[in-house]
Design a protein around this nucleic acid. Structure first.
Length: 739
DNA sequence: CGGTTGCAGCCTTCAGAGAG
DNA sequence: CTCTCTGAAGGCTGCAACCG
């Protein structure tokens, strides 16, 4: 890399080590111009940026020809971005922003070749980190001005100064050409153009850079011949692009007349990667001729515009062709998705258009999303829960485009938007009546209400919110409880993922509650009441500390047929910690109300004499029952011994309160180990006193002896099972299936 | 020969519509 | 309200082709 040529722009002087304000750089440029005189052309140049502590970035001369650079300092972090049209490399430290910048170059097709960043709001939507970025609006670089150009896109007339600058004068930093608004502290936005910039882009570079035309070109609506477009299609693309650009920027408009269309056509056809007809055989055609041929020829031989494979990859995937990054079938899907631009495409339609196997398409779109090429958003249209796939470059926050395009906005729910609104409401109210929530979301109709109900239940299972019943703030005297939704905690990304993905655990029992939810107030809490005739118990167990809120949602019982019930009970009690757990809570959390009597019976046996229920060395697995008073109603609270010990240590409980007291003469005869009994253990932690008389051969038996004693009828030995080998002396030796 | 990829069959789940 | 049917999505699995 050469440098040091006296004609070079010593940009590095400007930027080494520190960041400069625009006025500072202007001053430096002015000094340089005085020293060297304007009009001198740099032969080599490079720029070094110090982008962060100890990191230098050097831009090779070639890729610097038409580039823009910017340094953004935001939230204490500094990043550098640059984009080079000639090397067609987008290099970034922060992909979304650069992607955004490139897709925001709406005016690349304009003769004035302005690069524009539309609004700070768009930036913050794209990059959360850059929410404080307020840099905008325009930097303009005069092209080798097209002949006949009389005015700029904003309607102002060209001046002689404009014309002279376009011939190479360094008018770059005039306010006319560079308008950069910087906020005072949060950002320094600096753009550098070399003198080469003043010669601006060759038309083909403009076309390359165009965010809309290339995908449009790459995917015409002609399904029989994808990746090509008719001349009429091209004109449609141009019209569409400029009409949408006008909508977005009401302050400026651009006249797309025939002359302009012809100009774009000439740019296109001179682009080396655009082929009109096969092998560029018709690139020489004027727009009029191409249109005439397209009209006259039969459909199979009509003039069509193709782009190269490389160009398609760049437009669609954003990088050079690389089938290790995007597999061929994935690229086919990506191409279709890209052709639908910001509207996106429903996955169901994607299956039809691609012709690929319906079971393979979801997997591929998932992969594409993982790789960052597309955005896949869960939506519900009519009865179908599916996904909307949008090329990442075109993704935006609202679905209005897709909804309108589909003409089914009344039957489309975007779950991301829905979740945002739902949690915004819950954050505001913390607890809200289900009917109010329904109205706030505008989900009054049965279909949406059903969707909302399911979503609430899903989120409840995830643990983000809770369905409860609460008294109204306007009815202090009336104790009527209303079904409500309460925010438990802020949802995380993982929670949203769980919400979107299918999960057996989450969906279990959802169907049991379907239908019940649709009638307000007929929730599962009412069902619980049916099984809990002892109203006293229910009140104790369900009232929360707020006093006015009851649990209304249903907890999935943790019962598993593969686990011993006593172990499950202990786990539930132990998990309750030092707060303890009541009969009813164990029932709800573990088994379901149908198991009430058996559970209470089992619990009573476990705790009646907890000092005996476990042998001394396993006493940490015992359950202690304490008695509590709620108003005038007594109820049991259970703790694991370890947790109860913590309470004792904290002076909040005493062992004497739970000590076993014999109530009858029979019980008096049992020898109960005292509370502070210490087990007599050997070095392995096993009790020294082994009750030998219950064991086979007094506890000194082989595995085989044990098996033979049990003699399981359904145990079949396989070749992989260890086998005891009977030795000659009738003892047993090492096992081996093959010996 | 093992890993990767694409495809197809079979299955379950979800959600809505419609009949009884 | 319940049941059945339908369409869509997607998980699991096995098979075949391809490649290094």
């Amino acid at each position: 890399m050469q440098c040091g040529n006296k004609h070079n722009w010593r940009m590095e002087i400007l930027t080494y080590g520190t960041f400069h304000t625009l006025s500072h750089i202007k001053g430096k440029v002015s000094e340089w111009s005085k020293e060297h005189g304007s009009g001198t052309e740099p032969t080599n140049c490079f720029v070094s940026f110090r982008v962060s502590q100890g990191a230098w970035v050097r831009i090779p001369p070639l890729s610097f020809h038409v580039s823009f650079f910017m340094i953004v300092r935001s939230a204490g972090r500094v990043r550098c971005f640059w984009w080079s049209a000639i090397s067609r490399q987008i290099t970034w430290q922060y992909p979304p922003l650069v992607q955004f910048l490139v897709s925001s170059t709406h005016e690349f097709l304009s003769p004035t070749a302005a690069v524009r960043i539309s609004s700070p709001a768009s930036i913050s939507q794209q990059t959360a980190d850059f929410s404080s970025v307020v840099c905008y609006d325009i930097f303009v670089c005069p092209a080798t001005l097209p002949a006949g150009l009389e005015q700029w896109t904003d309607g102002s007339k060209l001046t002689s100064l404009d014309r002279s600058s376009s011939r190479g004068d360094c008018a770059l930093w005039r306010p006319r050409w560079v308008v950069v608004l910087t906020s005072l502290v949060s950002v320094v936005f600096v753009m550098f153009f070399t003198h080469y910039c003043c010669t601006l882009m060759h038309p083909h570079q403009l076309v390359q850079a165009h965010p809309t035309l290339m995908p449009s070109l790459c995917h015409s609506s002609n399904e029989t011949a994808p990746s090509c477009a008719s001349p009429a299609d091209i004109l449609t693309f141009i019209d569409t692009f400029y009409s949408s650009a006008t909508l977005e920027t009401s302050t400026r408009s651009h006249t797309v007349d025939r002359r302009f269309q012809e100009k774009v056509w000439s740019w296109l056809t001179s682009h080396p990667e655009v082929s009109v007809g096969r092998d560029r055989e018709s690139n020489h055609l004027h727009l009029n001729d191409a249109e005439r041929l397209a009209r006259e020829a039969d459909p199979e031989h009509a003039v069509r515009v193709f782009v190269s494979r490389e160009r398609r990859w760049l437009a669609v995937a954003g990088h050079e062709p690389d089938e290790t990054k995007v597999l061929p079938l994935e690229f086919a899907l990506l191409s279709i998705i890209a052709s639908h631009k910001s509207n996106g495409i429903f996955q169901t339609d994607l299956v039809k258009l691609s012709g690929q196997d319906k079971r393979s398409v979801p997997k591929r779109t998932d992969v594409l999303q993982e790789k960052g090429y597309i955005e896949k958003r869960a939506i519900q249209i009519k009865s179908v829960r599916t996904s909307l796939c949008v090329l990442r470059r075109f993704s935006k926050s609202d679905l209005s485009g897709a909804a309108t395009a589909g003409g089914q906005e009344e039957r489309l729910i975007d779950f991301r938007d829905f979740n945002d609104r739902l949690f915004a409401i819950l954050r505001e109210y913390k607890i809200i009546a289900r009917t109010d929530l329904k109205n706030a979301l505008g989900f009054a109709d049965p279909w949406r209400w059903r969707v909302l109900s399911r979503a609430l239940r899903k989120f409840e299972r995830i643990g983000v919110l809770k369905r409860v019943r609460a008294t109204s703030q306007y009815a202090h005297d009336m104790k009527k409880l209303h079904p409500c939704v309460m925010l438990v905690r802020e949802p995380t990304e993982r929670d949203y993922e769980l919400f979107h993905e299918y999960s057996q655990n989450i969906y279990t029992d959802l169907e049991q509650e379907d239908g019940l939810e649709l009638e307000d107030g007929a929730g599962p809490a009412d069902a619980t009441e049916d099984f809990a005739p002892a109203g006293a118990d229910k009140a104790v167990g369900m009232v929360k500390q707020e006093g006015a809120v009851e649990e209304a949602g249903r907890t999935i019982p943790a019962w598993s047929p593969d686990r011993i019930i006593h172990n499950q009970i202990f786990d539930l009690v132990d998990q309750a910690g030092t707060s303890g757990i009541t009969n009813l809570d164990i029932l709800r959390a573990g088994f379901g109300s149908f198991f009430r009597r058996p559970l209470e019976n089992t619990l009573a046996r476990l705790v009646e004499c907890w000092q005996l229920s476990q042998p001394l060395h396993l006493r940490h697995l015992a359950i202690v029952r304490d008695t509590a008073l709620e108003k005038t109603i007594t109820h049991y609270i259970h703790y694991s011994t370890a947790n109860f010990q913590k309470l004792v240590d904290a002076g909040e409980a005493s062992w004497e309160a739970v000590e076993f007291v014999p109530r009858n003469t029979k019980a008096e005869k049992i020898s109960v180990p005292p509370i502070d009994a210490v087990p007599d253990l050997d070095e392995n932690g096993l009790p020294k006193a082994v009750p030998t008389k219950e064991l086979v051969k007094n506890g000194n038996a082989s595995l085989l002896a044990g098996i033979l004693t049990v003699n399981p009828a359904d145990y079949n030995c396989t070749g992989n099972d260890p086998m005891p080998l009977r030795l000659k002396d009738n003892s047993y030796g090492k096992f081996s299936p093959w010996q």
